[in-house]
Simulated scan of single mutants.
Amino acid sequence: MCIVAIAWQLFDELPLVLLSNRDEFLERPTQELHQWSDQPIYAGRDNQSGGTWLGIHQEAHDGVYQQNGRWAAILNFRDGVQAGRDERSRGELVTEFLTSALSPMDFARNIRLQDYAGFNLIIGDATQAVIVNNRGHAPTPLYAGLHVISNGQPEDSWFKTERLRGRLRQEVLPLIAENNSPEYWQQAAFDVLSDTVQAPKEHLPHTGVAVEIEHVLSSVYIKPVAFGNGAKDVPTYGTRTQSIVTLTKNSETSTTVIAEITSRECAYAS
């Protein structure tokens, strides 16, 4: 079901630090992080629907990569409403934004919200970040600060969002402030993304799914679990990919010089 944390405009040389866990059925066919040959996108790819859950704009010209600073992430919205077969893939919203020339706000305002199952979409470039969903949250610019979003409303305080927020403030953001070199802080970020502590039953959100399922989904990192109609001892769902996205800005010229994704696949994901 996924979780995303965004440190937006907190650090002069790193205006964006985005951490993401992608939770998905293990059998869903997926390509790992790569440069797409058919679109100017650097991302993993959902081979079932053709879109992605997280990516940046990047294209290759004669072996040289060019970027424009655009980035995007999408999460499902969990409210007990099943996706319809006639609805468009939510991953298309990420690819369409990354290949669009519209500003983040203009793109968000032009989404046909009724065409998709429930989603939270976060899109941005070097200067603006916007969040929107089709469950009543209008396109809204992100203020400078730390934002943690999962599968409810952006302002919801779920156990997993507050646990991730707290650990980032204590264990990761101080490291970035001290030294923003990736090798100095990214392992700590991945460690925080790998938190498997589940919520006490009394702190579970009410989203329309069974309490037992809600409990399994309540940790930042979801260990492999059997969902659906398969054998109960065969894992079918869990956190499949962990990613960190950054925008790096040249402090002397105040221009963004590189967008980068660091991603790792979980060992049990097929």
Rank of each mutant, 00 (worst) to 15 (best):
A73V: 15
V211L: 15
P205N: 00
E13N: 10
A72W: 12
R45L: 03
D46S: 05
R240T: 04
S218E: 06
E87N: 09
D191K: 10
C266E: 04
T196L: 06
P224Y: 04
A177K: 06
Y116V: 05
P182N: 04
L33T: 06
Q186D: 00
S103F: 08
A267E: 14
Y143V: 11
P200N: 06
R85P: 07
I149V: 15
L204K: 01
P174C: 08
P235M: 07
L168G: 00
P200Q: 03
S20R: 13
D23A: 01
Y221C: 02
G69Q: 06
V216M: 04
P29I: 05
W8P: 01
D233F: 04
L247V: 10
S194W: 08
A231D: 14
N47G: 03
G51S: 09
L93C: 07
L146W: 12
T127F: 10
R70G: 04
G51L: 09
V234S: 03
W71M: 06
L54W: 14
R85K: 13
V130C: 02
A188K: 07
Q35P: 04
E260L: 03
V257G: 02
E87V: 06
I176V: 10
T241F: 14
S254F: 07
D79G: 07
A108E: 05
Y143D: 03
S181N: 11
